[in-house]
Amino acid sequence: MALSIHQQICRSFSQRVGTSTCQSCQFSTSQTLHEVRKLMRMRIVDNSAIGKAAAQIGKPPKVIHVYNKRQVGFLGDKVLVTVKGEMKKAYIVGLRQKQLPNVPRMDTNNIVLVDDKGDPLGTRVMVPIPSALRGKGGDLTKILSLATKFV
């Protein structure tokens, strides 16, 4: 009688399986948003030498600045990343975040490295790029010319 019904049921289940404890979480949590913020690890999807080297070593690039008022990156935003000890600029071409209707969501956060002028460091982009980036213009047009496939 001292135990609540929940505890009794859990107890019986645990007796069958062979473990114990019954504590509930006191904190409220939101779902994971997968937002691009500082110190986030990204994946380089072009065939630049630095990108390939970083992938081989196993040290992915980390975002250290987002060129955005809100400091949260979206598709097509410019970011500053550290790759193998160097600081490079990059553009976001794919996000793991939940997107608007008709905009694709990728399984990895993809970036394409770019130099200070805005020219991409690689020569090809191997993964599909969202078609929604085509209307944005600016430096993205140079990146989109490297793309093989649009989704």
């Binding site: 008709n102 990728m106 399984d107």
Partner: peptide, 12 residues
């Protein structure tokens, strides 16, 4: 999966 990358799209 397109070119080795998983892609999901939501449509209304």
């Amino acid at each position: 999966v397109v070119d080795g990358l998983g892609v999901e799209v939501m449509y209304q």
